[in-house]
């Protein structure tokens, strides 16, 4: 072969430079009471891309790990592992989520860096042996809709039941969490506008806004 063989790291850094890796997440969150969620689902079914067989449901188990990077002033690194309970053969998802960028008020959405990686099912053992500590875990169950690049999820969080009975799960609260998010490479602020416009359409039912986590 005449052409030189590139290494894997070369192609990765080339990809990073040309900004094709989606490593930023733009999102908005809100909540809606259990009593009003049916109406919201109907509205979403009308607004979002057509799903003939009803909205997609998901039933996942998420675990959050943290690993210390250094002495106390340094923030630990947070990693999340998610697996689908309804499709046990699908790959598990490892997610790195950074701190949200403190914004300017003009930014319509929260922006944070995030990396989504599909992994085999040995990832929990891998992380524990690496020194990560399990901070908390929960079960999340709900519906997912899509509109163009946007992902809308309406979901309920449940406490982990030690006895592992799937029906005996205890919900954390009487409401559903609604999230609108888009994963995109850095530097595409027009997407934030799109999210805000969509959020306006859900306005009276659910108020989606930037949530300041620090507060």
């Amino acid at each position: 072969m005449a052409a030189p063989i590139g290494t894997a790291m070369d192609s990765l850094s080339a990809a990073l430079k040309s900004k094709i890796i989606p490593n930023q997440e733009y999102f908005l969150q809100g909540s809606i009471l259990d009593s009003a969620v049916e109406v919201l689902l109907h509205r979403l079914r009308g607004l979002c891309d057509n799903v003939d067989t009803g909205p997609e449901t998901f039933h996942d188990h998420e675990m959050c790990f943290s690993i210390r990077r250094g002495p106390p002033p340094e923030l630990p690194l947070f990693l999340r592992v998610r697996r689908a309970l309804d499709y046990p053969d699908m790959p598990w998802q490892l997610r790195y989520i950074g701190q949200p960028e403190l914004g300017d008020k003009s930014q319509p959405t929260v922006v944070r860096s995030s990396l989504d990686i599909a992994t085999s099912n040995t990832v929990v053992e891998f992380l524990t042996e690496l020194g990560c500590r399990l901070d908390f875990e929960y079960i999340i169950r709900g519906y997912m809709f899509r509109k163009g690049r946007m992902k809308v999820t309406v979901s309920k969080i449940f406490k982990m039941n030690q006895g592992k009975l799937p029906d005996g799960m205890e919900p954390m609260s009487q409401s559903y969490l609604v999230e609108l998010s888009v994963l995109a490479p850095s530097g595409q602020n027009a997407i934030a506008e799109d999210i805000r416009i969509f959020a306006e359409q859900l306005k009276p039912l659910v108020q989606l806004e930037k949530i300041n986590y620090i507060r």
């Binding site: 894997a8 990765l12 990693l79 490892l94 990686i117 992994t119």
Partner: peptide
Amino acid sequence: PLIADRLFDLV
């Protein structure tokens, strides 16, 4: 052992 996507390098 662990098998993951290319983005794992970044993590």
